[in-house]
Simulated scan of single mutants.
Amino acid sequence: MLIASVCLTVSGCEGSQSSDGPEKGDALSGGNHSGGTAGYPFAAVGEKFWFAMPLSTNVSDQDIEITGAEILDVPRGIEVIGYGAYSLDDTQGIPLLVSEGYVHTPKFGKFKDYSDEGFTVKAKKVSDFLYMAHLRVTGSIQTNASKCRFEYRQGDVMYTQTLRCGLELRLKKK
């Protein structure tokens, strides 16, 4: 099923930094997509979903290369099967939250996955690629996911930046 419940609100960005890891970045914005929540209250144990992480917008004056992304606060009851980065041309837009097997769900397994090689987002431009999280429901889900971390390179420096990403899945009530 194609499900999306989006509320557009103003949201900020958070960064993370460690003394021996990437620098804290601020070149990305998730735009309106980062301010909403995609949800589905009728999930079943074993059901698989694809969740669209925020569409990267490079707000800086230099190109960046996105090299990875992940959900930081995956709720208990949800397992991450994997992540992929796909061309918006292939996905024909942004499938915010889609159930695997639904007739209108993009065929991610047939698309080129750019997550291993990374992709460039030009300065002051919105990305042509979208990170998707492939998820499986494993049990009761009581909390939401709300933080997605992106890794990117700008020049010779590696950065991480956390953007808000809203995911609300719940099991169907019996």
Rank of each mutant, 00 (worst) to 15 (best):
M1S: 10
I3C: 12
I3A: 15
V6K: 10
L8I: 13
L8R: 12
T9F: 08
T9V: 11
V10K: 12
S11G: 08
G12D: 13
G12R: 14
C13F: 09
G15D: 06
G15W: 13
G15R: 06
S16I: 15
S19C: 10
D20R: 11
D20N: 13
G21A: 07
G21R: 03
P22Y: 11
E23F: 06
E23L: 13
K24G: 10
K24M: 15
G25S: 03
D26G: 15
A27L: 03
A27K: 09
L28H: 03
S29I: 06
G30V: 08
G31M: 02
G31A: 01
H33I: 10
S34W: 09
G35I: 07
G35E: 07
T37K: 11
T37R: 12
T37S: 09
P41D: 10
F42M: 07
A44V: 13
V45E: 11
E47V: 06
E47Q: 15
K48I: 00
K48W: 00
F49A: 01
F49V: 03
F51Q: 04
F51E: 07
N58M: 08
N58S: 00
S60N: 00
Q62K: 12
Q62L: 08
Q62A: 11
I64D: 05
I64T: 07
E65L: 12
T67R: 13
T67D: 10
G68K: 05
A69D: 06
E70R: 15
I71T: 09
V74G: 04
P75G: 08
R76D: 14
G77A: 05
G77C: 01
I78V: 14
E79R: 10
E79C: 01
V80D: 00
Y83T: 06
Y83P: 05
G84Y: 07
A85H: 09
Y86P: 00
S87Q: 08
S87R: 09
T91H: 07
Q92L: 14
P95F: 07
L97T: 08
L97M: 05
V98L: 04
V98S: 14
E100N: 08
V103H: 11
H104Q: 13
H104F: 14
H104S: 12
K107M: 07
K107W: 05
F108P: 07
G109T: 11
K112D: 11
K112G: 01
K112Y: 12
D113Q: 01
S115W: 08
G118R: 00
G118P: 01
G118W: 01
T120E: 15
V121E: 03
V121L: 02
V121T: 01
K122H: 12
K125I: 04
Y131S: 02
Y131I: 04
H134K: 10
L135C: 04
R136L: 06
T138F: 03
G139D: 01
G139H: 03
I141A: 03
A145F: 02
S146K: 13
C148K: 03
E151N: 14
Y152D: 06
R153L: 01
Q154I: 00
G155D: 01
V157I: 14
V157P: 02
M158K: 10
T160V: 00
T160M: 00
Q161N: 12
T162P: 02
T162C: 14
L163C: 06
R164K: 13
R164D: 09
C165W: 02
C165A: 15
E168S: 15
L169R: 05
L169G: 04
L169S: 04
R170V: 00
L171M: 00
L171R: 02
K172Q: 14
K173V: 09
K174P: 14
